[in-house]
Simulated scan of single mutants.
Amino acid sequence: MSLVAVGACYIDTILTTPHYPGEDEKLRAISISHRRGGNCPNTLEVLQQLTAHNSRTVHPSLNLVAVLPAKSSVASQQVKSEFEPRVHLDNCIYRDDFNEPASSYIIKSQSSGSRTIVNYNELPEMTVDEFRKIADKLGPQSNWFHFEGRIPDIILACIQYLRQKFPAVRISVEAEKPARPGLQELAVEADVVFYSKSWAQGKGYQSAEECLRKQAELTRKASLLCCTWGQDGAFALETGSGNLIHRPAHSGPGFKVVDTIGAGDTFIAGMLYSLLYQDQKWDLSQKLSFANRVAGMKVAQEGFLGLERSLELHPGS
């Protein structure tokens, strides 16, 4: 089994504050932390734990395709040390003229639990020609390509290239940010689509079910559509049968929201793990329950360490 995840890789600086600061307000932070971020890197962080923990998983190959600063930069060395050897970075695109990584500065309000994110990225984006060279190398040995829904015009051309050259490869995309044009066009080309609540509401949908039912009419190539809806859990629709499944958000005795950063990325990791490695063993309800469980465990802790425990708690693992 081989998966290729294509998306941005960030270095996050997280400030936890008593409350969100007002304009021109001086405020002392409670804590500061630094971590590697980005949607696809977060998803791969969780996937490497799940596949390493399951002894029945046969030689998984996890690959990141991201634009990074020069190989010798502190940031690129940090990403390399955190990921290799379980996640391969051989096909990342290194910009030798740049030393600063894509960065996120996150303010977490302790009083409300909200998070405010400011991004900075001066790295030139991946080009279609760069992706084609990578696809020619990875395509023959890959089962699945997953795309973060960013730079949609380039990603659309990348997906079309995969369809032409490697028609057996399955493709998933994430539609997350409501203000980003072009995500609908990506969804139309995918086999599996992950919709966020904010994207669905931005399109005027009043519920996850409405989103999935209406999207099924537009995404003729897709076999599975998923939509997370915060505390109301997650929904999945098998487009062929029209079977709609809902599973509640994971909780338990003493459950408390601690850190929501990367919760959606973790849900996607749970679903990709289920689809790639448990497809014949788990039905859709079990897959959705597992994705909710691993995402709920992530929300209840800081960071991503130890999420492989979700396999020990999931029936049938």
Rank of each mutant, 00 (worst) to 15 (best):
L47W: 11
E122G: 04
H146C: 13
G270W: 11
N99H: 13
W229M: 11
A70S: 11
R115Y: 08
D12R: 04
I117M: 15
R86G: 02
E189R: 01
Q231R: 14
S2T: 15
S207F: 07
L15Q: 05
I245T: 13
V188C: 05
T219V: 07
A216M: 09
P60T: 09
S81Q: 12
V193C: 12
I106T: 04
H246D: 07
R150L: 02
T57Y: 03
M271T: 14
G252I: 00
T13Y: 10
A66L: 11
R220H: 13
K221T: 08
W229N: 10
D90T: 05
D279C: 14
L89K: 08
K298M: 10
G37Q: 04
V193N: 08
T239R: 15
N39M: 12
R247L: 02
D265I: 13
H59K: 08
E210L: 11
D97P: 06
I151H: 07
Y20R: 05
L288V: 15
W229S: 12
Q49G: 02
P248F: 04
Q231Y: 04
D136Y: 02
L311D: 05
R309Y: 12
R28L: 08
P69K: 09
P60W: 01
A269N: 03
C158I: 05
E217S: 00
W282A: 05
T51K: 06
I134R: 05
R213I: 06
T116W: 00
R56H: 10
C227R: 09
L156H: 09
T51R: 10
A66Y: 00
K197D: 10
F147S: 02
E209V: 07
E174D: 15
S111Y: 03
R309C: 09
L313F: 12
R35F: 06
P18Q: 01
V4M: 04
Q231T: 13
A52D: 14
L138D: 06
S172G: 09
E130L: 02
V6C: 04
F235Q: 09
L47M: 15
K71P: 03
H250P: 03
L225H: 11
D191H: 13
A168F: 05
Q231D: 13
P69Q: 00
E82K: 12
H53K: 13
F235Y: 15
Q160F: 06
I245N: 03
W144A: 12
A75N: 06
C9R: 09
F235L: 13
P101Y: 01
H88T: 12
V294G: 00
K221V: 02
Y94Q: 11
E125I: 12
S223R: 11
V299D: 01
Q280N: 10
S61L: 13
L89C: 02
K214S: 12
A8H: 06
K256F: 07
S55G: 05
D97L: 12
F255N: 03
L3M: 13
K214L: 08
E308T: 06
L62D: 07
N99A: 01
P152M: 00
G230L: 11
P85M: 05
K108W: 06
H34K: 14
G242I: 02
I171S: 10
I14R: 01
N243I: 08
K108D: 08
D283A: 02
I32S: 05
K203V: 03
Y277F: 06
L225Y: 11
L244N: 08
A236F: 10
C226K: 01
